[in-house]
Design a protein around this nucleic acid. Sequence first.
DNA 1: TTTTGTTGATTGACCAGTCAATAAAAAATA
DNA 2: TATTTTTTATTGACTGGTCAATCAACAAAA
Lengths: 197, 197
Amino acid sequence: MPKLGMEPLRRRALIDATISAIGERGSLDVTMSEIAGRAGVSSALAHHYFGAKDELLLATMRHLLAELGADMKRALRSAETPRARVSAVVAVNFSADQFKPQTIAAWLAFYVEAQRSMALRRLLRVYARRLHSNLMNGLTAILPRGEADKVAETTAAMIDGLYIRRALKDGVPDAATAIALVEDYLHTRLNPKKTMK
Amino acid sequence: MPKLGMEPLRRRALIDATISAIGERGSLDVTMSEIAGRAGVSSALAHHYFGAKDELLLATMRHLLAELGADMKRALRSAETPRARVSAVVAVNFSADQFKPQTIAAWLAFYVEAQRSMALRRLLRVYARRLHSNLMNGLTAILPRGEADKVAETTAAMIDGLYIRRALKDGVPDAATAIALVEDYLHTRLNPKKTMK
DNA sequence: TTTTGTTGATTGACCAGTCAATAAAAAATA
DNA sequence: TATTTTTTATTGACTGGTCAATCAACAAAA
């Protein structure tokens, strides 16, 4: 009963299934059968479309990255000032779409796998570079380059750190608190001040 | 040729082998044979002393935690002022013993595994709590409790974030830069300032 | 009849954990 | 002291299970 044009649908379904499987297991140790089952197809079909497991994992990571990128683009479009752009970047990383247990677990798992897979490591570096440049986009208008660089690095580290720490907790992620911490840092770091005494 | 009193030596050798195996592979996907081989014994002996792989992994995590704890204790002893205590906590986390590719990879891998293993999650929470309280130890003497709490959270997130970001890079970790970033944050956050205008 | 979609069955590799057997030191017994 | 027994250390060989990947075969659309 082959309806035509199934390929893109299946690919998408398999990627979604991969994310949810990884999110639930909390690691990349998910079998092809498990993923295929969730997508409602046989494991043979998953191999048919993706060749090997690595490819599917890579495609999944790419998908996650693309989604984050799209969200980011959208958010940046409606940010008027440089300062607002910085806040927008932070906000997107902790938005409901991104900062949920499933996605967090997947990101973390991919970070670990990146130790072994060159392709994956490259992909994560793309993410890191993009995050940095998105932050710099706003920051360079506020601070001298060297300072902006440091602030961007710190902000990025905070975001990643809050993700990883979140992974230890149970229950629903608390995005508000995470954002507040980063904004608190940005506030003290960006607002012009003068030493007392 | 059984020499007596081998147990503690073997346990230690197996734990060391586990760390180096995980560090090299970059994940917990190391076989008992691989670990045992590195320790110079058969896999059967590893099972003899640790029962199951999980136990060995757990013991390894405990060992890492204990080493960090010992380093921390030592560093805190020679810190005179509250401010120095905060810096000491930061410095220890990026000390040569802690901030090396092997150890970083192991920590990261354990974070992921903690998603599945309750026992491991508990252990990592101990670490998080201890880091927090070590930071608070110095911070409460400088800031009101609420503020101190925020700074401690932020510092902890930065440390974890710098660890995870480090995992993406090749080559020798650059502890100096990492410490500089955290200290830069602490400096702007702790030094008494007054808003202009 | 070629292309696209799909699966059940199978293969081959890998691996955690078990077990019976061996050997030497220590303790108990004669 | 000489012996038997127990305890500690250690391994090779094996088992049962899991899983990625392959393949031949079937079905419907073009």
